[in-house]
């Protein structure tokens, strides 16, 4: 086991993949912080699930796995789905949650049907297309890691440049508008960044679980700090280690897809944070609640006794 691990860690391909998923996790954590604070986690879920038919259609168009074409397909169908959800709930056709699950599952269903159809075709190029469902980081190439790094650095720079604007818009969008910051520009920027991160993760984490990687790290990070910069930084760290450790676990086993292992590692971070965080953790909350109750109880008993003596 140890031997296996050391040989794995010194393997160039593995290092490359782990670096890729780690950086991906970092980005998901940072950008996902805006999504959870804006309460748009569910839209991220819809976006990633709904990307699947776009990937399939992209493949059908050119007949081979050209990364950029598949990703454009994913972005278009994901964005179209989120647009449909928002339109349906705004026009009161159906409620938001119903619209969300309807669109999410029907797009995903369409994606599965198309993928099955493609796999029945006598086209050898389709091999590995089903990796997009559960994610397979080992298919990552140097060019993929380079792509993740370039887009990632651009996104991080954007976060830095628009720090003040994104912050006020996330906290109080109406106030941001009255302060002269166009909400349509900021909304567009944030959505685009979110779409980019999700798309980057589709191949290694998969459409089903990618949204968890976007939401989870910031939920865990929120437990430990009360500052936006702190939440974002810690979410990046949690995301990074989820990616790296998840990739290690998936490579140790045989044929375990990376998506599930990454998300499982992340869930450990989340569960640990929810229970053990110093101020907001459930255990701490439980203890202080009990203490409070004990104190009231004592006070009440004290009063009762006092009354009895008086009577």
């Amino acid at each position: 086991m140890i031997e296996q691990l050391t040989s794995l860690l010194s393997d160039y391909t593995f290092q490359l993949v782990a670096l890729g998923t780690g950086f991906l996790g970092l980005l998901s954590g940072v950008i996902g912080t805006y999504a959870t604070l804006r309460k748009e986690s569910l839209l991220g879920d819809a976006l990633s699930h709904a990307a699947l038919p776009g990937i399939a259609i992209g493949f059908l168009f050119i007949g081979r796995k050209e990364w950029i074409v598949l990703m454009i397909g994913a972005a278009v169908s994901g964005l179209f789905a989120t647009f449909l959800i928002q339109w349906m709930s705004r026009k009161n056709v159906v409620k938001f949650d119903s619209a969300l699950s309807l669109i999410l599952s029907s797009f995903f269903g369409l994606g599965l049907v198309l993928l099955t159809y493609i796999q029945d075709q006598p086209n050898a190029n389709q091999a590995g297309l089903d990796n997009f469902i559960y994610g397979q980081a080992s298919s990552m190439l140097l060019s993929d890691v380079r792509m993740i790094s370039i887009i990632g650095i651009v996104l991080l720079v954007l976060v830095g440049v628009f720090w003040k604007e994104f912050k006020v818009f996330t906290f109080d969008p109406v106030f941001a508008q009255t302060a002269g910051f166009s909400s349509s520009i900021l909304q567009f920027l944030l959505s685009t960044m979110m779409v980019l991160v999700i798309i980057l993760g589709l191949e290694s984490v998969g459409v089903i679980l990618m949204s968890a990687l976007v939401i989870g790290p910031s939920v865990a990070a929120r437990q430990w700090t009360d500052r936006l910069s702190g939440v974002m930084g810690l979410a990046g760290v949690f995301g990074f280690f989820s990616g790296v450790i998840g990739t290690i676990l998936s490579s140790l086993g045989k044929q375990i897809p990376t998506g599930p292992t990454i998300v499982l590692v992340m869930s450990v971070f989340v569960v640990f944070s929810l229970f053990f965080a110093p101020n907001r953790g459930l255990i701490r909350k439980y203890i202080s609640q009990k203490k409070q109750q004990q104190m009231y109880k004592k006070q009440m008993e004290g009063k009762k006794e006092g009354k009895e003596y008086a009577g």
Binding site: L37, K39, K164, V168, T170, D172, F175, A179, T225, D226
Partner: peptide, 18 residues
């Protein structure tokens, strides 16, 4: 607004300068 937003009082007031 969501008052559980991770920020402190001084930060919110400074937003008035934005």
């Amino acid at each position: 607004v969501d008052w559980d937003f991770p920020t402190i009082v001084l930060d919110v007031v400074v937003m008035g300068r934005y």
